[in-house]
Design a protein around this nucleic acid. Structure first.
Lengths: 187, 187
DNA sequence: TAATAGATTGACTAATCAGTCGATATTTAC
DNA sequence: GTAAATATCGACTGATTAGTCAATCTATTA
């Protein structure tokens, strides 16, 4: 594996376990099997490493969501895919999902340019725009829909985490029906 | 103001702005107007300070929720109070609400004894038990109800934060109707 | 082949910071 | 009033750590 990727992988593991403060760059380098200086060859500062790790993880998730998207899908189907793909990705990438939130509730988030963050939420914004014009969804501000969907996904994920594996998919399905019921415009 | 409280207040402000790592104890002491050693007189370690700040904030919120609770209230009314009190407290104590989540997504959470954390969620557990036997709410696992309500509160709060103050209470009200519609058992 | 650019190393440093400690002040208890 | 307990101070230290740097190694290219 490339050393840059090895550094990112190791940093993820250590940041999640020990936090930003509890993880010296020397430990990351050692555990990644590279020299101290190599880490700073790829990432000018520890802060850069923290940020680039965040961006790379978000990109990974977004790419997966992008492959699922199909312009012909109904709103409900599009939303279902977004919802299932996100939760199932989170379940098999728990460290990465945790890290996203770890950064989100830290001052490091403010260091990431607004343009980058905006780019990251393209997928969801596109879905919301589509939902809005479709008439399948209750009329509400975009930000509210975005926030509600996001927090419900987070909530269902947290719940499913505590459940036995053989019940997870059922739980996710039930969670979907609930949230769809929440936002669907009944005709 | 007592020096211990001054230290806690200052630590809150600095931790939220600069993070745990970005806030040296010396800076906390200086800005709180006490000597370096005084900080360690009240809090044996920096870790202790982080944890006790978390517990004191959670206790503050819980005390407010406790004063609202009335055994005679219907489930819907009890839930309404829980929901409104929490969001409105969060709106006027944004730093504190942020800090709770900052700790929640950090390794410091694991340092807080389970008994303490359990004590902190008493209010919500009591509400859920009451809701369960009332028959006013859909049958679902306690943890799911807990998680859904929590994430909905978080979501509405995040949304309301971005809204003009004169629209906030309406938004909160709408959010309440939504989540109640989600969990209510229609007869 | 020779030259250029990039990758890798690890010893080193300058700065920082959590926590100590002995001295002094203030409050409490008797 | 006096003694004990507690609060406060701030200079100090030992350890840690982010980041540097000069040297070496390894492609890439012309």
């Amino acid at each position: 594996m490339g050393k840059e990727k090895k550094i990112l992988d190791t940093a993820l593991k250590l940041f999640v376990e020990f936090g930003f403060h509890g993880t010296p760059t020397s430990k990351i380098a050692k555990e990644a099997g590279v020299a101290n200086g190599t880490l700073f060859h790829y990432f000018a500062t520890k802060e850069t490493l923290i940020k680039e790790l965040y961006v790379s993880i978000k990109n990974e998730l977004n790419q997966i969501l992008a492959t699922q998207a199909n312009p012909n899908d109904s709103i409900k189907e599009a939303f279902r895919k977004l919802y299932f793909s996100t939760i199932n990705w989170a379940l098999v990438n728990q460290d990465k999902f945790y890290y996203i939130q770890q950064v989100h509730f830290s001052p490091h988030l403010a260091q990431i340019p607004a343009a980058v963050l905006h780019e990251q939420s393209k997928m969801h914004i596109a879905f919301i725009e589509k939902a809005k014009v479709s008439g399948d969804v209750k009329i509400m501000p975009n930000e509210l829909l975005y926030t509600l969907v996001n927090s419900q996904i987070m909530g269902i994920y947290q719940y499913v985490l505590t459940q036995p594996i053989d019940q997870q998919q059922d739980n996710i399905e039930q969670g979907f029906e609930m949230i769809w019921d929440l936002i669907e415009l009944k005709k």
